[in-house]
Write a protein that binds this DNA or RNA. Sequence first.
DNA 1: AATGTGACTGACACCATGTCAGAAACAACG
DNA 2: CGTTGTTTCTGACATGGTGTCAGTCACATT
Lengths: 221, 221
Amino acid sequence: MSETTSKSSASSPARARSHRHSAEEARREILDSATRFLQESDFRNLTVGEVMEGTTLSRPAFYQYFTDLHDLIISLLRDVETVMHQIASPWIEGEGKPIAALRESIRGVVETCVQHGHIVRAIVEAAPLDERLEQEWQSFMRRWDDAVEARIVAQQQDGLIPFFNAQRIAKALNSLDVNLVVAAFGRHPHDDPSDVLETMYHVWSGTLYGRPPHALTAKNR
Amino acid sequence: MSETTSKSSASSPARARSHRHSAEEARREILDSATRFLQESDFRNLTVGEVMEGTTLSRPAFYQYFTDLHDLIISLLRDVETVMHQIASPWIEGEGKPIAALRESIRGVVETCVQHGHIVRAIVEAAPLDERLEQEWQSFMRRWDDAVEARIVAQQQDGLIPFFNAQRIAKALNSLDVNLVVAAFGRHPHDDPSDVLETMYHVWSGTLYGRPPHALTAKNR
DNA sequence: AATGTGACTGACACCATGTCAGAAACAACG
DNA sequence: CGTTGTTTCTGACATGGTGTCAGTCACATT
């Protein structure tokens, strides 16, 4: 064998053959490749072959870590959930002044979605195509809905929010958020985050607390 | 030819072989079969073969009338649009008292979606999978968004609605409607239409006009 | 009856998927 | 170091839905 002629020992640029991963390493490598792909393209163009090309592994190796493309998306969904849940805590947990906390929570959601918007979009688009993923997505959203509903009910009992069917409104508002986020940050170029924040805040506060404060006295005939 | 023996002339039950359609007849037959299928199942299970089984034609015949399953969905979208547009006219066109008209328009939308919810659901789920369908769907929604935006702007100038970015709010509210309708009437069993109506009305009126009228004085601490 | 036109179909090539038997790397043990 | 066991990995294959095409079939016109 030749020593230092054409290729250096282990740092060959793309052909890093002859090296095994631990199970976790490989998973991460695949997930990263998929994420990278989704930054540039859509779920509809995602294919097992494409994903594995961005990898040191071959196509069949994919099936040792995921049963499916949908299964891979479920993993991404899990990752997103852990990030998101604590972001929205201010209003959800009832910390500080309700309306200010609401704004703060929405701000957090918008901000993290600027980063993970592509993934959220992929999840939303892929969910209807697979039974299991669909269920995971529904569960994810239900946890969200329940949290919001609980907060609404609590503030209804404090007289801060008028009475109405908290469950349905919670569901409606959350689904609206998903739509806005996907539309705004699901693909390049992104919309202006502060515009999205304003829109969300307007609808949420208008629906829950009444007319948004800053518009109350403006031009109200 | 036998006169009145076993089968009456043209109404043979299922095996209507040896009979050609006009172009329009065949199209309708295919569209009907697809619609029937979507009543019972999802877009993810829809396949060209399945559709054509509900038909007197063979699978390849499909491609004489549609380039694609997505193309077929586009036809269904067109059908839905013509039905829906005049339904929402009361508020859109500014007829009568704004808030009552809003309620009336929403009522109409909900009502027609009770019938065509399955199709709307199929459209929404299929749209991200095909470039052309995606564009058609976006155009459809944009026409809707523009109409709502125009109405908001008109009523802002009349002092009925406070000033805010009408375009973004219109888009948000419309996307919310789609979500609610698909969730409520996209598959069996359907939700209660009046619940859906209340939810939509609550969010719309809260966002546009301020706190919903009937909750204004109730239990507002 | 002969011919032209458009509706229709059987058979095929294509492509992504998911599987499987076995190869290749690595570790443990002698 | 061999040998053996274990885990990771891959080449090659079977499957199923898609879209195409050359050719057939029903019907109208003459």
